[in-house]
């Protein structure tokens, strides 16, 4: 019987198990999932290319649709940005879980004797990396097209916090939707109403930084964003095990 930390010889090969419990094993599992997602994406480029093309198209369409003066551009920028990130993010979330489901790999992950929340956090971090890559490409392009400086530390912090919240909810819901035949349609229908508490403060706080509001006016939205990030992450931590199981 393979015990944690045990070594035994079967056939010619010794099989050594590390201690299966503990923070180290948990973090190693998260790291392995992130590594696997990044390597697979580096080879296929399916997820990033779809997200990126979609995001750039949305920005371009808004650019042609909204022929606005500089003042009005500042007021709509946060909305346009978050619509772009949210829609492009949905494509990525769908694809990220579909890869696991299509070849039965989700079962492979669920069969591993680690706490299943490690799978969740591994997928969250992987999805967050993809989303941040898309944002890092969209932001300079948007700055050029709309002639607005988006590289403000406050705004970047809001984008990071908003993305964390979005991905935290999105990864949980995509792991639910992936079991359905209509998962491509189901995810946005489930996700957008639930993620509103993240998107609204993200849009308001982004708008505050872009329009140069006082920090005192922005801070409540920022706090709300942080609180929702923590709440969504905690809820996902508690329910993920049940969500992924039949």
């Amino acid at each position: 019987m393979p015990e944690a930390g045990s070594t035994r010889v079967v056939g010619d090969q010794p099989v050594v198990h590390r201690r299966t419990g503990g923070l180290g094993a948990y973090l190693r599992s998260i790291g392995a999932i992130i590594w696997k997602d990044l390597v697979a994406e580096l080879r296929s480029r399916e997820l990033l290319s779809a997200m990126l093309v979609f995001a750039l198209l949305v920005v371009l369409i808004f650019n042609f649709a909204l022929e606005l003066d500089i003042r009005t551009r500042e007021t709509v920028t946060s909305g346009v940005l978050w619509v772009t990130f949210a829609f492009a993010g949905t494509l990525g979330l769908n694809r990220s879980m579909a890869v696991e489901k299509d070849r039965g790999c989700l079962d492979g992950l669920l069969l591993v004797p680690v706490d299943r929340t490690a799978i969740y956090f591994g997928k969250v971090i992987g999805n967050l990396v993809f989303m941040l890559i898309v944002e890092a490409i969209v932001l300079p392009l948007y700055s050029v097209l709309y002639n607005i400086n988006l590289f403000q530390p406050g705004l970047l912090a809001v984008i990071l916090l908003g993305s964390i919240g979005y991905v935290a909810v999105g990864t949980l819901l995509s792991s639910m939707a992936v079991h359905a035949r209509t998962r491509d349609v189901l995810l946005p229908i489930l996700l957008f109403p639930v993620v509103l508490p993240v998107l609204v403060p993200a849009i308001k706080a982004s708008n505050g930084f872009l329009q140069g509001f006082e920090m005192a006016e922005i801070l409540p939205w920022l706090n709300l964003l942080i609180v929702y990030d923590v709440i969504f992450m905690a809820v996902a931590f508690m329910v993920f095990d049940y969500v992924v199981e039949e």
Binding site: P2, A40, S44, R103, G104, D107, L111, P113
Partner: peptide, 19 residues
């Protein structure tokens, strides 16, 4: 969790990553 340490599963799907 204790069962999964002692269990190996092969299904008609390979449970492997194509990429």
């Amino acid at each position: 969790a204790a069962v999964r340490v002692r269990l190996g599963v092969v299904s008609h799907q390979p449970l492997l990553y194509g990429d």
